[in-house]
Amino acid sequence: MIRNEPVIAVQDVDASATWYQTLFDCNRSHGHGGDKFEILTDDEGSVLLCLHEWEVDQHPTMMDTTITPGNGLILYFRTDRLEQIRNQAEKLDTEIERDIERSPNSGEEEFSIRDLDCYYLTISSYHDYGHGYK
């Protein structure tokens, strides 16, 4: 079995965790790093995202806070609650980069925003890969 558990560097772990909890209505599993690391999970306990404070533990990609966070990265989430999450993004006063539209690749509706650290998120209606994906 292989699972992907993305870890992103953030300026304020608690603020970012609270923001993601509000956006996705997800859980915090209070990671092994205290206020330096947080694990966000869905109701089944699957990891959605890990938040790691910059310049902790000597991780080579998290040492230089002057780089642009997320350059070349899209945090892509598939959900059966697209409208609810879009509404939460608005309540969080999050700038909508691209509002809900149909993706020419997946054929599914999606929208895009940036989080507190300017990571780019695309939230898509849930779909299985291989069915209409170009």
Rank of each mutant, 00 (worst) to 15 (best):
Q58M: 10
R102T: 15
N27I: 06
T68C: 06
D25A: 13
S125R: 10
M63C: 08
Q88T: 07
G33E: 02
L92I: 07
L40Q: 12
Q11K: 15
T66Q: 09
K134I: 12
H59C: 09
G107N: 03
D12P: 05
F77H: 12
I8W: 08
T61C: 13
R28P: 08
Q11F: 06
P69A: 06
Y20S: 02
Y126Q: 11
R78T: 12
T65K: 13
E38H: 02
A15E: 11
E44M: 07
Q11S: 15
Q88H: 15
D25W: 01
H52W: 15
T61E: 13
D12Q: 03
D35G: 02
F111H: 00
D25M: 05
L73C: 12
E44I: 07
D80F: 01
R102Y: 04
G31M: 04
T68V: 14
C118K: 14
L82D: 00
L49S: 07
E110D: 05
M62T: 09
V13I: 06
E53A: 15
Y129A: 14
C26Q: 05
F111I: 00
Y119K: 06
E83P: 02
F37H: 13
V56G: 03
Y126D: 11
I8M: 08
A9M: 10
G45N: 09
I2E: 09
N4A: 14
Y120W: 11
D14Y: 07
H131N: 12
G132N: 08
L23P: 12
A89P: 08
G70T: 07
I39K: 06
P69F: 05
T79Y: 00
D57N: 14
E108I: 06
L75G: 05
G31L: 04
L48Y: 00
E95F: 05
N105P: 01
E109H: 02
D57S: 13
I39S: 06
G70V: 05
M63I: 12
H127R: 09
E97Y: 09
P60M: 05
A17F: 02
V7P: 05
P69C: 08
I74E: 09
G70S: 07
A89S: 12
Q21T: 11
L48Q: 01
D14G: 05
D128R: 08
V13D: 08
D128E: 13
L121G: 03
I85K: 03
E55H: 11
D64W: 04
R3D: 09
D93V: 04
S16E: 09
D25H: 10
